[in-house]
Amino acid sequence: MPLRTARTAPYLFLAPFVLSFLIFGAYPIIRSVMLSFYITSGPEAQHFVGLDNYLHLLQDPDFWTAVRNTATFALGSVLLQLPLSLGLALLLNRADIRGRNVFRFIFFSPNLMGLVFSALLFMLILAPRFGLLNAALHALFGLPSTTRWLSTPSLVMPALIMVALWLYTGFNMVYFLAALQAVDGELYEAATIDGAGRWAQFWHVTLPGIRPVLIFVVVLSTIGSFQLFELAFLLLGNSSGPDQAGLTIVMYLYQNGFLGGDLGYAAAIGWTLALMVLLLALVQLRITGTGKEAR
């Protein structure tokens, strides 16, 4: 009896995870791969079409619009957000900044709010005529206060990027702060004595020191940006904005699968997105040479 207990005990301990993973993780994943080979109309009617969903996707102009929009958002987010996050982190890492903990909290605080609340807030801020942004632009630069941010095709993406900036800059700043604090202070002293100025110190000590975190944040932000859905959905609704200017890949997936009822096609979109993100991450890691160095 004790022998049997000893043999079965490990499996019993593992069971809760394994079972829930199989049911809620593995099964849906496999099922969605299979689903992507079918045309479906609602949960019942299914018709096997092989790779047709994928072939169709490659010629679907709406899908490419979604890819373009999503890529724009990702680029805008990464290129604007991360330098800003790093800049804030550098500032708030300095010991001579008064009340730096207060500032750290303020910049991080958007993350403490629900996304729905943030979206509501920005609907007010971005509103034409009475919105805070238009009022500010009018007061500062004399621009017209009638700009319709969320219903002008060319302004939808900039608006989304701006909201994402507000939401996530402080969050990424925390990653950078942690990384900066891990850089050995004596290296800066050594660099000072070796004749390095501020810029040279940033280039030769700070950047290499935070490199692993930097790469991590870039990859994570890119992946996150490609999965953009809630923000666009909350600000633009199902409509995906004027001229589909706010149509993102996941939004397109949602429209096909849950509004149009073709879960098969939606699954194909999902898997294509997953492949794209995987490829992108691999390219980024390749460019930065991660994993090749001994240290």
């Binding site: 050995d184 004596e186 290296l187 002293e189 050594a190 660099a191 004595i193 070796d194 004749g195 390095a196 040279a200 030769h204 000590v205 290499p208 020191g209 490199r211 240290r295």
Partner: peptide, 24 residues
């Protein structure tokens, strides 16, 4: 100056470390 922890630039090679003050 030589520091107790040596304060070598961890991402630079030995040569890169030695050359650094001259490059600066």
């Amino acid at each position: 100056m030589v520091f107790q922890s040596y304060a070598l630039y961890p991402h630079k090679t030995v040569q890169g470390n030695i050359e650094f003050p001259l490059r600066m």
